[in-house]
Write a protein that binds this DNA or RNA. Structure first.
Lengths: 130, 130
DNA sequence: CGTGTAAGGAATTCTGACACG
DNA sequence: CGTGTAAGGAATTCTGACACG
């Protein structure tokens, strides 16, 4: 598929799909026309990248993460060996995401609870509402 | 307790505790000296407010949410009756929080998975590590 | 001993303002 | 709008010392 279709199916702006490619996170083939050509599997990949980017991961961390993912588990080594710095960076990102999820989940349920009560009193006052 | 202790126990900057009060979200008593005096219950309240603020809720929405919370369920009306606008605003916030939680959770588990593999290969290459 | 007090400094808190993205 | 910071002052608390009965 071409970029427009991928954008539509993933809800990711075309601008961002091109940006991901610029950062090496997505590598579509090219038609003679120069049009990008994506595989079905790129839908999943683009979705993952988009999620990570929106979650605040710098693209330079997303790249090694993707490489790791594409490795055959049976393969030995082509990994970022013993990269202590990388491990530390990812550990920090994980901690950040974890606490952010907790904060948002907590807020989400507080808002949900409020919403329920708000609607309850609304109904009580507007019994004729459709 | 005074503002310093509350700040320490909630991990919320003093600056923010003062700001919450300015917005009517926290209403500590005052000592003759002018020092703020907080109750134990303010710990929970401050934590809730902080979470909501960090989650991106505007303080003007947090205020009615708190009021609602403090209402006795048996009481009748003193609520924001039939406030369609409020309901819509909260519904929008809820939707936003919900999708944000999903995005972050997804990213979180992707990073966690990567971290595991990263550590696994690190160990394989550094069997003597402590 | 238990208790009050003056002394000087350190830590805490106050407000109103400016800065930033 | 939420948050940080520098400024200048006021209230609070701390410690070690001296005094008293």
């Amino acid at each position: 598929m071409r970029i427009g279709e991928l954008s539509r199916r993933t809800q990711i702006p075309i601008r961002m799909l091109r940006y991901y490619e610029e950062r090496g996170l997505l590598t579509p083939q090219r038609a003679p026309s120069g049009y990008r050509h994506y595989q079905e599997a790129d839908i999943e990949q683009a979705t993952l990248v988009s999620s990570l980017v929106r979650s605040g991961l710098p693209t330079r961390l997303i790249l090694p993460l993707l490489r790791d993912r594409q490795l055959n588990p049976m393969d030995g080594d082509e990994t970022d060996d013993g990269d202590d710095d990388l491990v530390a960076l990812f550990a920090a990102e994980f901690a950040r995401l974890d606490s952010q999820v907790k904060c948002l989940s907590f807020s989400r349920s507080a808002v949900q609870q409020h919403l329920r009560r708000l609607r309850a009193t609304r109904v009580r006052h507007t019994p004729t509402g459709t």
